[in-house]
Nucleic acid binder design. Structure first.
Length: 826
RNA sequence: GCCCCCGUAUCCCAAUCGGUAGAGGAAGGGCACUUAAAAUGCCCACAGUGUGGGUUCGAAUCCCACCGGGGGCACCA
């Protein structure tokens, strides 16, 4: 008896079964040779899932199930990145407790994930807002603090006036808040930092260990870290014992320095003008610069502004006196905050020199040009030889940097140096819903770490979520804030900032491996057996945020002896976004489609398949204007077609083998070719083409039947292969049909099908004959044809002769067995 | 301003090494079944690969320029 495709009943039955049987539970200590740790970036629970999540989860779960069927010990965990601003905003706007709001959303997320058929090991689930998790954020913070990698300093920080918190550099996109898009302003505040700059070299050098990353992503990170090598050079101040150090990548242009520029915020600026007529002007200038947003300050149209400070620096290479200026184009937080200006060989210095009538002196001669003065239209920053540079005249650029720097070192005037674009990671947030920073400020002892046995510092409940000014909401929890000093027992106040939520995501993948540990964040033995992550999936949005921070943490953990691997995720698939009308689908913009309707109308398998069929995973996918209906036009009807095929053929399948006809053999060949191709499609994440191949196979199966085919053995082989090949993408339908075939166990624990090579090789192929580059004939030939046979066949062809005019070819290019190209000069 | 990716049929997308431009799907047309329709099954058509050059026996694929779309970086000394 055949029945209809009742996806709802099937999903209920098998969804329950998989969970009851704990089918996806992974061992704590897998066989190291067979382990596969598959992780997808854990989500922030801002409501229900949307189709963007559905795509990510479908891709991840499909890879996971495919890997499992290949016989590996697979671990695919899930948790929630549950701290963050939206929970707090809900509290402010609607008076809902952030914890209630968050846990409600997690419940929705989890229900949708289970309905989608995700094969997660739920035994390991955690929420980062749970004190049992964030206790270990605090513990790790203290370890970093002990190692000098966590420190507090006053600095000009990026302040989002809308979210009322500071942001890390990585969270500022083109001068705007990465979350809300508000224009970021600078505020001078005391903030906590992690010293990621100490790891800058290793973060660049170890990129090459990530063999499963795209070059594009590696380049994004490498650019963000921005290593440049050069020299630090010390300049004296005329009439003073003070020195100012500059960083330059071109110490070979030192002789061309005609002025000296320091950042307006540079402490030396104040010293130089103290008590002079320039003092007031500097103060005015600083205010003017401070008023600028980063967007204004970095605008290329805006002319560079500066101010002469009335003082002079002494160039250490020739003792020349050059004027000291402050200018807005020199940044306090890059290099040393001071530069030597070489207008002949730096475009910015040239523009500034022109605007302020400062001298220009050429010291690098481009190859092939005569000596003498040049009409400078633009600065020359290419290679050449040094001129007007004292003892170094004639030195070519490829060696000059090293030679000059070595010489500076001998003279004690400079040294080799490396400078990075990346800044230390600012982790303080003036928000409530995050991990409290475990530090106290004691009236007599100063900054004191919370002792380990007092962790966790639990978030207080009684707070004003919407405080005025720039203080954290935690400052309003008076009872919580005041605590005794662990050192002296005197009065102390707690740190009221919380941690950036990227701290949580920097190490969460270790926690899955030991999720219930209450003595440590994780046991190194447990972590090391599963780590590193064999396949990580997630959006490219995190290229310079999560993916850099987590690599930094991994290296710190390695230095602490807690992990063995220098890189946490050497293989990474960056899937594209689901967009609507070109804009990324995201809760924050209200631009979302939830999966509930798709599940209700077409079922989870159809929804999964639809997302996988939409194109290559790396590519963005624009959600169709007609909405979920398109699932009902594409993958849902096809699943019904698969279902009918299985139902209608089940009786045939039960009978024993008969003799195989040519029709049967042809189908068997296609089955095995499909196994071959679909397997490689899965391995290269080409799910859209894998589905197309399976559609082809199903089309052939229907034609086979229409042509009178019905061999029981072949039919069974067809259906079992089809179900197995489809199982990772459509887990429910395949499980149901697998059992309907009479199997006891789950199809998802079956071995991946193997193709028979004897059936995939082709005996005959189509040979193309080209004459002067144009196809003139096609012939069916044996696959093992020789070049000579090809040529004989081709020359015997009337169609070919019509184009060669019977003349012997001047040239023959043979690519057996498929192509023969003849060249005949007219 | 600099760098990277992408432009294939009406649409979404395929096309190992450069080797017959088309696998799959949508929409479209037709046939069968039906009193009719839906559903189902079968069949059909459609582009010469954004534009212009170049290399090659042969280019969607490699090179150059331009156009269009997307992304990254943007005073980094």
């Amino acid at each position: 008896m055949s029945s209809d495709y009742d996806f709802k009943a099937i999903e209920d039955r098998w969804g329950r079964f998989w969970i009851d049987e704990r089918m996806w539970s992974a061992p704590d200590y897998p066989d190291p040779a067979k382990k596969r740790y598959m992780v997808t970036m854990f989500p922030y629970p801002s409501g229900d899932l949307h189709m963007g999540h559905v795509e990510i989860l479908s891709i991840h779960d499909t890879i996971t199930r495919f890997t499992r069927m290949q016989g590996y010990d697979v671990l695919s965990p899930m948790g929630w990145d549950a701290f963050g601003l939206p929970a707090e905003n809900a509290a402010i706007k609607r008076g809902i407790n952030p914890k209630t709001w968050t846990y409600d959303n997690i419940a929705k997320h989890r229900a949708s994930m289970e309905r989608l058929g995700c094969s997660f090991d739920w035994d390991r689930v955690f929420y980062t807002c749970d004190p049992r998790f964030y206790k270990w954020n605090q513990w790790l913070f203290l370890r970093l603090y002990e190692r000098g990698l966590a420190y507090k300093k006053a600095a000009a920080a990026n302040w989002c006036p809308n979210d009322k918190t500071v942001l890390a550099n990585e969270q500022v996109i083109a001068g705007r808040c990465e979350r809300c898009g508000a224009e970021v302003i600078k505020r001078y505040l005391e903030q906590w930092f992690f010293k990621i700059t100490d790891y800058a070299d290793r973060l660049i050098d170890d990129l090459e260990l990530n063999t499963g990353w795209t070059d594009r992503l590696k380049m994004l990170q490498s650019n963000w870290i921005g290593r440049s090598t050069g020299a630090e050079v010390e300049f004296g101040i005329d009439g003073s014992d003070e020195r100012v150090t500059v960083f330059t990548t071109r110490p070979d242009t030192l002789w061309g320095a005609t002025f000296f520029v320091i950042a307006p915020e540079h402490p030396m600026a104040e010293k130089l003008v103290a008590g002079t007529e320039h003092e007031g002007r500097l103060a005015d200038f600083r205010q003017e610069v401070a008023r600028l947003t980063d967007i204004d300050r970095t605008s290329t149209e805006r002319p560079k502004k500066g101010l002469f400070l009335g003082a002079h620096a002494i160039n250490p290479v020739n003792d020349e006196r050059i004027p000291i200026w402050v200018a807005d184009y020199v940044l306090m937080d890059y290099g040393t905050g001071a530069i030597m200006a070489v207008p002949a060989h730096d475009q910015r210095d040239l523009a500034f020199a022109r605007a302020n009538d400062l001298p220009i002196k050429t010291v690098i001669e481009p190859p092939g040009s005569g000596s003498g003065e040049h009409d400078l239209h633009e600065a020359y920053n290419g290679e050449g030889v040094m001129v007007d540079s004292g003892p170094f005249d004639g030195t070519p650029t490829d060696e000059s940097v090293t030679i000059v720097t070595d010489w500076l070192e001998e003279q004690g005037r400079g040294r080799h140096a490396v400078s990075f674009r990346i800044r230390d990671w600012l982790i303080s947030r003036q928000r409530y819903w995050g991990t409290p920073i475990p530090i106290l400020f004691c009236d007599s002892c100063g900054e004191v770490a919370v002792p380990e046995d007092e962790l966790p510092v639990v978030l207080p409940e009684d707070v004003d979520f919407n405080p005025t000014g720039e203080a954290s909401p935690l400052a309003t929890a008076q009872e919580w804030v005041n605590a005794p000093c662990p050192n002296c027992g005197g009065r102390a106040r707690r740190e009221t900032d919380t941690m950036d939520t990227f701290v949580d995501s920097s190490w969460y993948f270790h926690r899955y491996l030991d999720a219930h540990n209450d003595k440590a964040p994780f046991d190194p033995d447990r972590s090391n057996v599963w780590m590193p992550i064999d396949q990580y999936t997630g959006g490219i949005t995190h290229a310079v945020m999560h993916l850099i921070y987590a690599r930094f943490f991994q290296k710190v953990l390695m230095d602490m002896g807690m992990v063995d691997d220098p890189e946490p995720f050497p293989a990474l698939l960056n899937q594209g976004h689901v967009t609507m009308a070109g804009k990324k689908m995201a809760k924050s913009t209200g631009n979302i489609v939830e999966p509930a309707e798709a599940f209700a109308r077409y079922g989870a398998d159809a929804a999964r398949l639809y997302m996988l069929f939409s194109g290559p995973p790396e590519q963005d996918f624009d959600w169709p204007a007609e909405g979920v209906t398109s699932i009902g036009r594409v993958t849902y009807p096809w699943l019904q077609r698969v279902w009918r095929l299985c139902e209608e053929q089940r009786d045939v399948v039960a009978i024993g083998p008969l003799e195989e006809s040519a029709l049967d053999t042809a189908l068997r060949k296609q089955i095995h070719r499909t196994i071959e191709v679909v397997s490689t499609d899965y391995a290269s994440f080409s799910f859209n083409t894998a589905i197309a191949r399976l559609m082809e196979l199903v089309n052939s199966a229907y034609r086979y039947r229409a042509a009178g085919g019905g061999h029981p053995g072949v039919t069974r082989e067809l259906i079992e292969a089809l179900l197995k090949l489809l199982a990772p993408m459509a887990p429910y339908l395949t499980e149901e049909q697998w059992h309907r075939l009479g199997h006891e166990g789950s199809i998802h624990l079956e071995a991946w099908p193997v193709f028979d090579e004897a059936l995939t090789v082709r005996a005959e192929v189509t040979m193309i004959v080209q004459v002067n580059g144009r196809v003139r004939d096609t012939l069916e030939v044996p696959a093992d044809i020789t070049e000579a046979e090809m040529q004989d066949l081709a020359l015997a062809s009337e169609k070919v002769q019509a184009h060669t005019g019977g003349r012997p070819p001047d040239r023959v290019i043979a690519r057996p067995p498929k192509l023969l190209s003849l060249v005949v000069h007219p």
